[in-house]
Design a protein around this nucleic acid. Structure first.
Length: 567
RNA sequence: GGUCCCGUGGCUUAGCCAGGAUAUAGCAUCGGGCUUCUAACCCGAGGGCCGGGGGUUCAAAUCCCUCCGGGAUCGCCA
């Protein structure tokens, strides 16, 4: 709804500026604490108009023409600022729309097909607390883009033939596989042992090399041993992701692009550009004109392909199947993803948009599956759910155990997802158990609680025979400050989705959801609903609570966090 | 050493790309609020030369330069 208001403001301001004989492509619109939206256009035009910004602002404000059905209300100037407020129509219309559109409210203004790749961790062990930053950013992005209106397919690109996987398959011949453990964890055990053994016995490395050559040549027994190990780990990873409400639509395997011949084809295409040369037996690409000093290796001296080579083929394939490709990658991929884009560009292929997130490290240093230095996501989820159970027990001791477990799951995952997504991806973080298990106030559970609270009011009203969602309402009775603030906050949801989908920044949705819950809680505190004296007022306030329930649920859904009716 | 990212009250953090009105919020601290729709809540207070220094501008947390601190990365790993 705010998007529509903003559009009207833009066009009204443009017309006003034009009517005074000026031109600008920057209306300087910004959120403001003094109005629903403010314009700094007078600053921009002051030089051109040779007038002082204050007088200019007044002239522009006077020149604004508003049609009858406008959403724009009061317009004032304070110095050079033009402060523009929405009118009553905006408030009332917002309430009507939320009730009409329900779970669709706040989206549906974009179209196109997007392939979104995220997580794609190597299947050599379980997801750890660093990986899930990728998963949560990626999954939230998916939800944001889908709400915005895009057709989104998420993919987990499975590395089923890299060096690490060769080590895993070798490890299974060297060490006993503990079938009593979750398979991704059991694989990590033997993988860690294998790496230690290879470290102590460097002559064994040739066994890994030969496995890689065999799999690339299509040796069935070797491929089978890789596949089995990979399938075990991927199954465990999917289970972990599902616990966090993360689900991928497909799992393309790297080997598929070798077998289809796509990798060989793309190597030939790159050769045809004349950019390649053989350096020390390896095939390298010159990307110096793209600003990369070092060449990019796309084939080992033994002729086998690298991750990068297979990734090029994968992106070519994706580019043919979508309007946009988005990859969520860790900071260690910054350079390689730039080289990937440059190479795709050099052969005339579509390039992906890359979302980079910085690392999550441990107090003692960076995480490493190979060295066994990591905290499995499963451990974090187990502990946070245990902690959440304690919190539920404290508050709802009388409820059945099944209820408490369910709430603990929802709240625990909500806390984890919110905690991770609320921070800008470009900040590196250090994982801290104490912090992770501390139910930070005004985090995920705070928003879930607000939703439960709205549900609780509606439930009670319904039991008392006071609430009927079909009954006509008169939103103009919603005049308390906290009511209007809440409605305006809800109206802004579409604009938050629009911005975060355009900038691919999921954390702004997290901030918004918290602010929305905050607005609702203030309304709850100051305005009686069920006990409102006037029947009409009570009805419309109940409708407002229902609106809050809807928008809170939409915001939570966008964050991949459950919206419990009771907790 | 080169390149990229980050550095905002005790801690975590928004704003920076598109410079402008008293710099955002949470945690923690202190004070207040449950006979009233779930207190996982609400209200209030203190606390910041926006890492340091230069520059551009009428105006800099925001742009440029430089230094310091942290992270990432620098061909046959992914």
């Amino acid at each position: 709804m705010f998007l529509e208001f903003k559009k009207q403001v833009s066009s009204a301001l443009e017309d006003a500026v034009a009517s005074l004989g000026f031109q600008t492509d920057d209306l300087g619109l910004e959120a403001s604490q003094h109005a629903d939206i403010a314009s700094k256009v007078a600053f921009r035009l002051a030089a051109q108009a040779k007038q002082n910004p204050k007088e200019l602002a007044e002239k522009i404000a006077e020149a604004i023409f508003l049609p009858d059905d406008s959403l724009i209300g009061e317009i004032t100037t304070v110095g050079p600022y033009i402060n523009i407020n929405a009118n009553r129509n905006y408030i009332d219309e917002t309430v009507f729309r939320i009730r009409k559109e329900e779970d669709g409210f706040g989206g549906g203004f974009c179209e196109g097909r997007i392939l979104l790749e995220h997580t794609s961790a190597n299947p050599n062990g379980p997801l750890h607390v660093g990986h899930i930053r990728n998963s949560i950013i990626g999954d939230t992005l998916k939800r944001i883009l889908m709400r915005a209106g895009y057709d989104v397919e998420t993919q987990y690109y499975v590395n089923d033939m890299g060096r690490q996987i060769a080590i895993v398959s070798w490890a299974l011949t060297q060490f006993e596989f503990d079938t009593s453990r979750k398979p991704d964890h059991a694989i990590a055990d033997v993988y860690i042992k294998a790496n230690a053994k290879l470290n102590d016995n460097p002559e064994k490395v040739s066994e890994i090399d030969s496995r890689m050559q065999l799999v690339e040549k299509g040796d069935e027994a070797t491929i089978k041993s890789f596949d089995e190990a990979v399938a075990l780990v991927v199954e465990g990873i999917r289970e972990t992701l599902l616990r966090m409400n993360v689900e991928h639509d497909s799992f393309p395997h790297e080997s598929g692009f070798i077998r289809s011949g796509a990798v060989n084809r793309i190597v030939e295409e790159i050769k045809a550009t004349g950019r390649t040369e053989v350096d020390d037996g390896a095939l390298v690409v010159d990307l110096s004109d793209y600003g990369f000093e070092k060449t990019l290796v796309i084939q080992r001296s033994d002729g086998t392909s690298l991750y990068t080579t297979r990734d090029l083929a994968y992106h070519e394939w994706k580019g043919e199947r979508a309007d946009r490709m988005i990859d969520v990658l860790g900071a260690d991929h910054k350079l390689i993803s730039g080289q990937l884009k440059a190479t795709l560009n050099a052969i005339g292929k579509k390039e992906p948009e890359i979302v980079i997130f910085e690392f999550v490290s441990l107090p003692e240093g960076s995480m490493s599956t190979r060295r066994g230095k990591f905290i499995p996501a499963d451990d974090l989820l187990d502990k946070i759910e245990d902690q959440a159970y304690v919190e539920v027990e404290k508050r709802r001791p009388e409820m059945p155990d099944e209820f408490k477990r369910q709430v603990a799951r929802n709240v625990g995952i909500g806390a984890v997802r919110y905690d991770i997504v609320k921070v800008s991806p470009e900040k590196s973080t250090v994982f801290d158990w104490k912090e992770a298990l501390d139910f930070e106030k005004q985090g995920g559970p705070f928003i879930q609680y607000s939703h439960a609270r709205a549900c609780s009011i509606l439930k009670k009203a319904q039991e008392d025979g006071l609430w009927d969602s079909a009954r006509p309402i008169d939103p103009s009775l919603l005049i308390e400050d906290t009511e209007v603030d809440l409605i305006k906050k809800m109206a802004a949801f579409d604009s938050v989705i629009e911005t975060s989908s355009r900038e691919l920044k999921p954390h702004s949705v997290a901030i918004y959801a918290r602010e929305l819950a905050d607005s609702f809680n203030q309304f709850y505190r100051f305005v009686p609903v069920i006990s409102a004296e006037d029947e009409e007022v009570r009805s419309v306030r109940l409708a407002l609570v229902d609106c809050a329930r809807i928008v809170l649920a939409n915001a939570l859904d966008t964050l991949g966090i459950a919206a419990p009716e009771s907790m």
